[in-house]
Design a protein around this nucleic acid. Structure first.
Length: 665
RNA sequence: GGGCCCGUAGCUCAGCCAGGAUAGAGCGCCGGCCUCCGGAGCCGGAGGUCCCGGGUUCAAAUCCCGGCGGGCCCGCCA
């Protein structure tokens, strides 16, 4: 098999080149290196803080000491190896560092040719160990529209899937439809009781569902509260009574706000709920659904969920996100999958009875050092027993999740499964993994990854789905698109209306996605829409603008009859100025950044890389080192090829984040 | 009460897993520049007890221990 050009570039990146040389010299001097240790050498390669020291370097003092080898000889031998690399112009010792100066001309040749040959494929270095991987993401409860938090989940999940695919893995994406929870039962109760059908024309189905849910939930809570109040009054507990009365006031206020949003709908649900016992009705409905006792109600239940999912799909598709498989939680209960888990649990040595219910005692698993290491736990970590079945025989969320995990592995024959799920579900995810191991699904338990992310806040907003208080993702996208539209209006007033709108849509949605993956997943973040749409810096619009600018340079060249002839490039032009050099080196390093981002599942590395690359490119652009006005043909070809390459990298990297580059804006 | 995550410039964040060169970006602030392939632009500057205290090390933002502050979790909820 011929070597992939990007692979050749990858192996010529400073990280790989330096690590290879250092490893070789260590081995030469009799040191035995594990695969892991080789890998770690690569990690400590760093960019030099000042150009006069070189471009990249590696601190060597630690090796000299750790392996007790002659430091002078070490430098000498490593340097000798390094200067044989075409991309290395010079290797030098600076203090305890071994530094290299990149041969920009050779690097440029290598990178330009790869970019020219592979185009869209440039940078997508394939892994040596392809895996089958399932990425489950978004999986929002189908009771209200998606909000900004779901957007973080979806953006991360989709970026993850794209990174892994580009890396050569075989990936499937899945959405878990949570239709067995109490929340959906609340919604279905209101929907069925009020005899509702379809949302009115022009209303997005999930928005309408969200309102039905909030109205039903609030009215049900009011009923519930009234019952409690009666009871307290009879028992003469006046302190508690007064407190609940206050709560009731608040709920009534919430209800009246909900009524304003759709008086007719509100009255319809209110009438249907009048005089009923909602809590009891909802529980009854849950049972009906779990055991499929009333086909008509089951069908309506499904129908209401389906309506909400329609809305989800619409929103996701606007963001360019397509999820391949949609799995119904109810399907697990309706087939034998969940009962099988219960059976296995009963027979398991980890079975126990906790608070009178069937449970698993997962604590003993922590004696296994492999389990501790893979799940990141200390020996004295305390895992609460996991109850699998209610006293009335119905199943619990986590039990169904265990069954679902097995399904994900089995159906796709997966080596690994990533669950993109909020960090607050950490304990539940841990219990699922431990339970899998306890029930004999060790491989699955060890290879299920909880890809946790923290919450997203909107400045000055408190959300509540139950009360219908939220900003929908749709509204947020609309806002982003509107801001983008204004910018397009200023920058390109002469474009046709339709084109302007198309660009605004692309820019606005990209801005949302880009910002949501720009911060590492474990940090809580505040989503600031104005920063997301800052056209001047650190944003999708900025990167898209840079891409459009590069595109425009190339098309202008074509207009003037300047053809990019790859065989006439004068590569010596690469080192004639700092900005060109810097661009070449950044382009060289791209395959490495990509591989690292994919292997560590860190899309934010791509964002950071893009911001920097665009900065340097724009700096070069504004420095006046014009390609079109260049009189020397070889140099002109170099500059055009550089523009071409950077444009290609911008587009390729954006694609990993699910963003399509555009040529005008 | 216990566990997990986070704490770096006024603000938003990189860097920490894998210790190493004078700790980096952007926003904001201050000062300059603008006849150039796409100007809401460009260049420069100020701004830091890396939460605190110990320890390990030739070397600590990074590792270990103890605190402090914030978030989340500890349901026969999902």
């Amino acid at each position: 098999m011929p070597k992939q050009p990007s692979r050749k570039v990858y192996e010529s990146t400073p990280q790989r080149v330096l690590a290879r040389a250092v490893a070789a010299v260590l081995v030469q001097q009799g040191v035995e290196l594990s695969q892991q240790e080789r890998r770690q050498i690569e990690y400590i390669v760093a960019e030099s803080p000042r150009p006069e020291l070189g471009d990249y370097g590696i601190p060597l003092a630690r090796y000299a000491k750790r392996y007790r080898i002659d430091i002078d000889k070490f430098f000498e031998n490593a340097s000798a190896l390094l200067i044989r690399e075409p991309v290395v112009a010079e290797a030098k010792r600076v203090g305890g560092y071994l530094n290299i100066v990149i041969n920009a001309a050779n690097a440029a040749k290598l990178v330009f040719e790869a970019a020219h040959l592979e185009g869209f494929g440039y940078g997508r270095v394939k892994t040596d160990r392809p895996e089958r991987i399932v990425v489950e993401h978004t999986s929002a409860n189908p009771v209200h529209p998606l909000h900004i938090g779901h957007a973080r989940n979806a953006s991360l999940g989709d970026a993850l899937a794209r990174l892994l695919r580009a890396r050569g893995h075989i990936v499937q994406t899945r959405f878990y439809i949570n239709d067995m929870g109490r929340q959906v039962a609340v919604l279905a109760y209101g929907y069925i009781a009020a005899g509702l059908d379809n949302p009115p024309d022009g209303v997005k189905p999930d928005h309408w569902i969200g309102l039905v849910y909030a109205i039903t939930h609030t009215l049900a809570d009011i009923e519930e509260l009234k019952r409690k109040l009666d009871k307290l009054k009879k028992e003469e507990k006046y302190d508690e009574y007064r407190q609940l009365l206050h709560e009731l006031d608040e709920l009534v206020a919430v209800a009246s706000r909900l009524r304003e949003r759709d008086p007719e709908l509100f009255e319809r649900i209110a009438n249907a709920l009048k005089g009923s016992d909602p809590a009891a009705e909802i529980s009854k409905l849950m049972q009906i659904y779990e055991y499929r006792r009333d086909p008509k109600k089951v069908e309506l239940f499904r129908r209401v969920v389906e309506l909400c999912l329609q809305g989800f799909r619409e929103t996701l598709s606007r963001l360019g996100i397509d999820i391949e498989k949609w799995d119904w939680e109810s399907e697990l209960a309706w087939t034998s999958m969940v009962s099988k888990i219960i059976e296995q649990a009963r027979r398991s040595p980890y079975a126990t009875v906790y608070k009178g219910a069937l449970a698993l005692n997962l604590q003993p698993l922590l004696r296994d050092p492999v389990v501790r290491e893979r799940l990141g736990l200390s020996e004295d970590y305390e895992v609460p027993p996991l109850i699998l079945q209610r006293s009335d025989g119905t199943t619990l969320y986590t039990t169904r999740d265990i069954a679902y995990s097995i399904k994900k592995f089995r159906e796709f024959n997966a080596d690994r499964v990533f669950n993109v799920i909020a960090a607050e579900q950490r304990l539940e995810q841990l219990q699922v993994r431990l339970a899998l191991i306890a029930l004999g699904y060790r491989r699955e338990g060890l290879n299920l990854v909880h890809y946790a992310y923290e919450m997203v806040n909107l400045p000055g907003q408190k959300m509540s789905g139950r009360r219908g208080r939220y900003i929908t993702l749709d509204e947020l996208i609309d806002q982003a698109v509107a801001i983008a539209r204004q910018e397009v209006e200023k920058r390109s007033p002469d474009l046709p209306e339709e084109e302007k709108q198309r660009i605004a849509e692309a820019v606005g949605t990209a801005a949302v996605r880009y910002t949501l993956v720009s911060v590492s997943a474990l940090k809580p973040m505040t989503f600031n829409i104005n920063e997301a749409l800052n056209f001047d810096r650190n944003s999708a619009p900025y990167i898209l603008y840079t891409h459009a600018r590069a595109s425009s340079i190339l098309s202008k060249a074509r207009e003037r009859g300047i053809q990019l002839d790859w065989s006439s490039i004068d590569y010596s032009a690469a080192s004639e100025n700092q900005l060109r050099r810097s661009l070449v080196i950044q382009a060289l390093v791209y395959p490495y950044v990509f591989a690292k981002a994919a292997d560590e599942q860190r899309p934010e590395l791509i964002v950071a890389y893009l911001n920097r690359l665009a900065d340097t490119f724009n700096k070069w652009y504004t420095s006046g080192d014009s390609a079109i006005n260049e009189s020397d043909r070889g140099k002109q070809m170099f500059k055009l090829a550089l523009v071409y390459t950077i444009k290609q990298i911008l587009a390729n990297a954006l694609d990993l984040l699910g963003i399509k580059a555009i040529d005008r804006m």
